[in-house]
Design a binder for these strands. Structure first.
Lengths: 208, 208
DNA sequence: TGCTAAGCGGAACACTGTTCCGTATCGTTC
DNA sequence: GAACGATACGGAACAGTGTTCCGCTTAGCA
């Protein structure tokens, strides 16, 4: 994830924060906080105590507030961080698997990402301007990624070619909604089904 | 509001709490808390500090927790209290004004009630079972009241007679939504317009 | 190697929800 | 109206939280 700092800086620039290379220790702290916060948010929700996050990150409270003065800053940063991780996983999947398989694997990955985002909707709609750019960031990062995966698979004749990336993104997200705490693998099964649906109308199949 | 204690007891019975006459001082405390909480919720939202409420009510913290062990209990009680106050205002309006005018005045009153309920939707959807009965309570109390006002006005020939109470309730509520902090009397004007719409098709008018 | 700005840690503070218990009040009985 | 038990009250005390502050440490550079 070497381009992460660049991405962060981009986001910073977009928000008007001064764009500057972080000192090594500051970068370490920031990374540790983002990782710890992601875990804590996933298990205890976004309202988890600050100390739980700083303890897991092995960092003092002052350090957290230095980098993320507002709680919303941290939440938004974690969100962007995970969006990036999910989106960046696509190329390596594309390199390792056949196009349709890469698409299937990435959708599963994406569903996993969405599943950890329960309880964020309340924050998103809190009116805090720190969240204003998140939806568009979500779209900007995921649409091209999914578009590319679809394209490759379609070009390879492994799936049909009349699928709108946005439809598929929304559908996948919605599939994760009914999932309860333990859903016995419901979501992965449903996504697999969706991908099979994509394969159904593929030229390679029609041709035989 | 002499029937209030009865109503409270009804609600209590409906929820399985023991139905019992409160001691005089306990009744005073409860009333003071409900009144104070209503004001505080309106100005500072439902997340306002407990001490702000107890201070305004002139009551100790222990007293609040005695009567409302959970915050959701207090919120629900305030809600019911205000629903009652709004619903109970209809008869006196009906006695003082011509039917259509009473209807208009009550809808304005209802709009005022709704306007103070912003920020409650988050609580309502929090999943706390204490709120489960509130929507039906809302409907049970308001539908008959509005139905009676409509009936009277229709029977007097002052408005058309093909209006569904539920439609009107929802419409009025929705009219208050776009209102900002200072909307320069937007909502009252829109409601007046709505009532004029009701009057338009009235028999008394058609007959001339 | 030494210097300086940047960054760090965590004690300390302010504010919150919640509990607890000695005291006060109510309603009843005689 | 006096006495008494049950009920309710008040607010200090406690525990948990977010946030600030500042002496100390470290990274980067000359």
């Amino acid at each position: 994830m070497s381009e992460e700092s660049t991405r962060e800086a981009d986001a910073a620039a977009a928000e008007g924060r001064p764009r500057k290379r972080l000192r090594a220790d500051a970068q370490r702290s920031t990374d540790a906080l983002l990782t710890a916060a992601a875990e804590v948010f996933a298990t205890s929700g976004v309202d988890a105590p600050v100390r739980e996050i700083t303890a897991k990150a092995g960092v003092g409270a002052g350090t957290l507030y230095r980098h993320f003065p507002q709680r919303s800053d941290l939440i938004a940063a974690v969100f962007r961080h995970e969006v990036d991780a999910c989106a960046d996983s696509a190329p390596s999947l594309a390199a390792r698997y056949e196009p349709a398989e890469a698409l299937a694997k990435w959708l599963q990955r994406f569903a996993g990402f969405i599943a950890t985002k329960r309880g964020l909707s309340a924050a998103l709609h809190s009116g805090d301007p720190a969240y204003d750019t998140l939806p568009s960031y979500f779209e900007q990062r995921f649409m091209p990624v999914l578009g590319a995966l679809l394209d490759s698979a379609a070009k390879a004749g492994e799936i049909r070619s009349d699928v709108d990336p946005e439809d598929l993104l929304v559908a996948t997200r919605n599939l994760t909604l009914p999932a309860q705490e333990d859903d016995n693998g419901h979501t992965p099964r449903m996504i697999a089904l969706l991908v099979d649906g994509l394969r159904y109308g593929a030229p390679a199949r029609e041709a035989r």
